[in-house]
Design a protein around this nucleic acid. Structure first.
Length: 460
RNA sequence: UCCCCAGUAGCUCAGUCGGUAGAGCAAGUGGCUGUUAACCACUUUGUCCGCGGUUCGAGUCCGUGCUGGGGAGCCA
């Protein structure tokens, strides 16, 4: 007999004579002539109720099945006589595959997120975390669908990079040199002896690679792991996270903003439609306002505002910020929060920032003072997307790099793309975990990634 | 890295004015029962985060370290 997923059985239109399920026991209750066992197999949020009649040969063992045990159950799917579920399985055969002794840490009660983080290997067996990771999977699928439908190609940009300064943050060094080897230590380690013959790091962004491919395949995107060695200790930062980076040739800043807005709306719409049960859990137990917030985001246009307009609004707001607002200074978290959560109460796309606070690759505007940058800010999360139109003019790019004191030799290939058939192009990076946080209402990034990596924490 | 808060039973937490520790859940035993995080009764469980100090006496006060959380910066 083939194993059925509980998700399918619960959607059944008719009783089924012979079914087989495998899964993990969530709870068990004894009754007079039988035992109720609730089994979850991860295929959906719901458990299926098993009726284990006392006539089963191993009924004695069945009455001692503990929460967390894995079981295999054969029987028939019948309409439930009790309230609370439409189908249940009357078992004809039950076997315990792997028992869970009483030290099993997950109880039939609510646990704190902090405790569950200490047992990250077991937390996907809870309702909330299984829902998070089903949604994470569904969002990944939707991202590929979104881009494929629009003719984008998926590019696998390298994880290990030799570009020693991509400008997006501190990098993790990659080396095969043995720091425990005293002879090498005495000789002083140097990169020429190393695997690649020069310094190598984990990527902080696939953008530069994606630009090269956009200038060949037209519209491309990357979707992969990204690494930042910043000593960030916040609920919004991880040392290893996933990022989606579309890059479009012959596309300006407005087109870039359109794509970012369209992508966010599409993804929210997708999970609301495809994962209603899991989403209801977050709406009920994580954030009561989640559904209203998401429907609002899907149905209303994002606000588009230039940096200087934003500065004006903040100055006129009469709110006493801890950090004063002034043109030329990057906006602080409290300012972004005011715009998205108090003033507009919806996502805001800020664009055209002063060039002094943005990286070299962003396209210089005609005013010579601002660059064609854009950030999408959402309530509760802050920056979820950061992007720009790229500087496609060779001389302007080289001047900018000189101004900012970069070693152009390290970027020879990047600059080369502006020498041969250069074209206007734009793109952005979207933090995948921040997207999941927005969609689920979960407030800590450590709870939306299977095994989070943060400063001082690499267990599991 | 900086600022603030917390750390007590397996989990979630209470512990008053400084007088050496408690509840619910879990676990164990028995009962009841088409039950719904079942219910009822009884039972077990402590490096009060570590180290040092003040005190006749510290879970409680002070110092320090560690761990966790929130905020800031960096950003996605």
């Amino acid at each position: 007999m083939n194993r059925s997923k509980i998700h399918r059985l619960l959607q059944s239109k008719n009783p089924l004579e012979q079914v087989l399920i495998n899964g993990w026991v969530r709870t068990r209750r004894n009754s007079k002539d039988f035992s109720f066992i609730e089994v979850n197999d991860g295929s959906c949020l719901k458990n299926i109720q098993i009726i284990a009649p006392s006539s089963l040969p191993n009924y004695g063992d069945i009455q001692r099945i503990t929460t967390g045990s894995s079981v295999s159950i054969a029987g028939s799917l019948v309409p439930s006589q009790g309230k609370g579920q439409s189908w249940e399985i009357v078992a004809t055969q039950i076997s315990v595959i792997g028992p869970a002794p009483e030290t099993f840490p997950l109880q039939k009660k609510r646990h704190s997120d902090e405790f569950l983080r200490t047992i990250a290997h077991l937390r996907p067996r809870t309702n909330k975390y299984s829902a998070v990771f089903r949604i994470r999977s569904e969002l990944s699928y939707a991202i590929h669908t979104f881009f494929r439908d629009r003719g984008f190609r998926y590019i696998h940009s390298p994880i290990i990079t030799g570009s020693d300064c991509e400008g997006a943050g501190e990098m993790f060094r990659v080396t095969t040199l043995d720091i425990h080897n005293p002879s090498l230590r005495e000789k002083k380690l140097n990169a020429e002896q190393d695997f690649f013959g020069k310094e190598a790091s984990l990527t902080v962004s696939g953008q530069l690679s994606a630009e090269m491919f956009a200038l060949a395949l037209g519209d491309v995107y990357t979707f992969g792991p990204t690494f930042r060695a910043e000593n960030s200790n916040t609920r919004r930062h991880a040392a290893e996270f996933w990022m989606i980076e579309p890059e479009m040739a012959f596309c300006d800043l407005a087109g870039n903003m359109n794509l970012g807005e369209e992508l966010l709306r599409y993804l929210i719409h997708h999970v609301l439609r495809e994962c209603p049960e899991d989403m209801a859990l977050f709406g009920n137990f994580v954030d009561k306002t989640l559904m209203d917030t998401l429907h609002h985001i899907v149905s209303s246009e994002f606000v588009r505002l230039s940096y200087s307009e934003a500065v004006e609004i903040l100055k006129k707001s009469k709110v006493s910020f801890e950090y004063p607002v002034n043109y030329g200074i990057d906006l602080q978290s409290e300012h972004e929060k005011f715009l998205t959560e108090t003033h507009f109460k919806k996502p805001v796309i800020l664009h055209d920032y002063p060039k002094t606070i943005k990286p070299f690759y962003m396209r210089l505007n005609a005013d010579q003072q601002t660059v064609a940058a854009m950030d999408i800010l959402v309530p509760g999360i802050g920056e979820i997307v950061g992007g720009s139109q790229r500087e496609e003019r060779l001389e302007v790019l080289e001047n900018r790099m000189d101004e900012m004191g970069l070693f152009k030799e390290n970027y020879w290939w990047y600059i080369d793309s502006r020498r041969y058939g250069s074209a206007p192009h734009s793109g952005f990076g979207m933090g995948f975990e921040r997207l999941i946080m927005m969609v689920t209402g979960i407030s800590n990034i450590r709870d939306v990634i299977p095994f989070p990596r943060t400063p001082g924490n690499i267990d599991f």
